Computed example of a mutant assay.
Amino acid sequence: MRTLHTGLEGHEALFVASQRQASHVLAFHRRHSRFLRFVDSHQKWMLMHMIADTCAGSAEGVAANWICERAQDIGIASRNTTLAFFGQLAAYGYLVRRECDSDKRMKLVALSRETEKILGEWVGVQLAGISPVGEITLDDDVTLRHIYLRSAGRLVGTPSYVRPPIDVGLMQDIRGGWLVMNDLLTHIDPTDCCKDSIAVSAFSIAQRARDFAMSRSTIYRLFRLAEEAAILGWEGEQGSDSLKMSGYHLRQYCRWNGRLLQIVCEAAQQANDNCRQTGTGYYFPQAAAGIRAPATRLL
Rank of each mutant, 00 (worst) to 15 (best):
269 Q>A: 07
278 T>C: 04
283 Y>I: 06
257 N>Y: 07
285 P>Q: 04
207 Q>D: 11
75 G>D: 03
170 L>W: 00
202 A>Q: 11
5 H>P: 03
140 D>M: 00
80 N>A: 13
279 G>W: 03
31 R>D: 07
31 R>P: 03
256 W>M: 08
138 L>V: 08
49 H>F: 14
285 P>K: 06
155 L>H: 02
25 V>D: 05
224 R>P: 04
66 W>L: 15
163 R>L: 06
143 T>V: 10
26 L>S: 10
62 V>L: 12
207 Q>I: 05
190 P>D: 04
252 Q>H: 06
219 I>V: 02
109 V>P: 00
118 I>M: 08
130 I>C: 13
29 H>S: 11
129 G>S: 09
90 A>T: 11
201 S>P: 00
166 I>Y: 07
248 Y>I: 04
247 G>F: 00
165 P>M: 09
141 D>A: 15
101 D>S: 09
180 V>Y: 10
75 G>F: 06
8 L>G: 09
271 A>F: 00
168 V>A: 07
111 L>T: 02
95 L>T: 04
7 G>L: 09
84 A>M: 14
26 L>N: 06
130 I>F: 10
71 A>F: 00
58 S>H: 15
74 I>C: 12
72 Q>T: 13
192 D>E: 14
180 V>E: 06
234 W>R: 04
156 V>P: 01
35 F>E: 11
54 T>W: 02
288 A>R: 09
215 S>T: 15
67 I>C: 13
104 K>F: 04
209 A>Q: 05
86 F>L: 08
269 Q>W: 02
88 Q>N: 08
191 T>L: 12
8 L>R: 15
2 R>Y: 15
236 G>C: 07
210 R>G: 02
184 L>N: 01
62 V>K: 15
102 S>G: 06
46 M>Q: 09
274 N>Y: 06
